[in-house]
Amino acid sequence: MTPTDVGTDPRAATAGDGAARAGRAAPLPPDERRASILRAVRPVLLERGVAATTRELAEAAGVAEGTLFRVFSDKLSLIGQAAFVAADPADAVPDLDAIDRALSLRDRLVAVMEIGLARIETTMRWMAILHEIGRVDPRPQAERDAAGRDGWAQWVQRQTEGEAQVRAALERVMGPDPGLRVSTARAVELFNVLLVGSSMQLVDARRRGVEAAPVDPAELVGLFLDGVARRT
């Protein structure tokens, strides 16, 4: 499942030179091409899961099907890597950093809550896709078990590193702000409790087939900043 090195083929270099002479954009370096494909196929995978065809994935990425298999060993490898990267918590950092710091603390936190709720919703879908891959993986069980152990170790490391980056981004969005009566780090911890807790409540309701009211980000931020006790 390791991508092949598409940059060592002399024919590729010759083709690239020819494209440059013809006035076309030069091919992307292998790592950039791989990252571009993984991002481009996300909408198709979120809609179709492992049922997505290589043709659909190639069209989404704007490349030929043969190009996919020069970068990824097979379709399941492509889908698995796309899900693995998309579920990385750090993927939300650019959106968090783009929040306007001139907004009030309340409005900044509503924007954070909207991003967070959407991210958790999407991450749950990526997790389901990874489970789908496990069900249809044609490799022998021993090979699948070994790959699963390695993949889990990578997953834990990626999640740990990504969560640390998200916490740092949240601290940049939150403060320091005179409206906080606790440290910025503590405020981030409490905010995450509310965000994750409300998301898991929705997930559990769906699992049980119970109709759940949609979460209002502004209401959650009001709860976070103002509490529920009547002020005297």
Rank of each mutant, 00 (worst) to 15 (best):
T232A: 11
P138F: 05
G62F: 07
I120T: 05
M1F: 01
E219I: 03
R119S: 07
R106E: 15
A22P: 06
E47C: 04
F84N: 09
E143D: 09
T184E: 11
L195E: 10
E121H: 04
E189G: 06
L68S: 11
G175W: 09
E132M: 02
E161P: 05
A98P: 06
P217L: 07
L190M: 10
P140F: 01
T184Q: 13
R108Q: 13
A168I: 00
D177W: 05
L170D: 03
P27R: 05
R172E: 15
Q165I: 04
D5K: 00
A185Y: 01
G49Y: 00
M200E: 14
D100Q: 08
R101L: 15
P217M: 10
L223V: 13
S77M: 02
A146V: 04
R181Q: 09
A153G: 04
R207P: 09
Q201C: 03
S199L: 03
V85I: 09
R149N: 10
V50E: 11
A83M: 14
P176T: 02
S183Q: 03
G209L: 05
F84I: 00
V50R: 04
D150E: 15
D95A: 10
A82F: 12
V196D: 11
W126C: 07
A90N: 08
T8M: 09
R167W: 06
V196C: 08
L45C: 07
A98V: 07
E56R: 03
I37A: 10
D204C: 02
A20I: 08
D226I: 00
E65M: 03
R48N: 13
E65R: 08
V156L: 07
V6C: 12
A26G: 07
T4E: 04
D150T: 02
T14Y: 14
R108V: 12
V173C: 02
T4L: 01
P29R: 09
R181M: 11
V6N: 12
L194M: 15
A111S: 15
R139T: 01
D74G: 02
A52V: 07
G7E: 14
S104G: 15
R24G: 06
R70P: 13
G148F: 05
R55N: 12
V203N: 00
G148R: 00
A64E: 14
V215C: 09
G7A: 14
S36F: 11
A35P: 09
G162F: 00
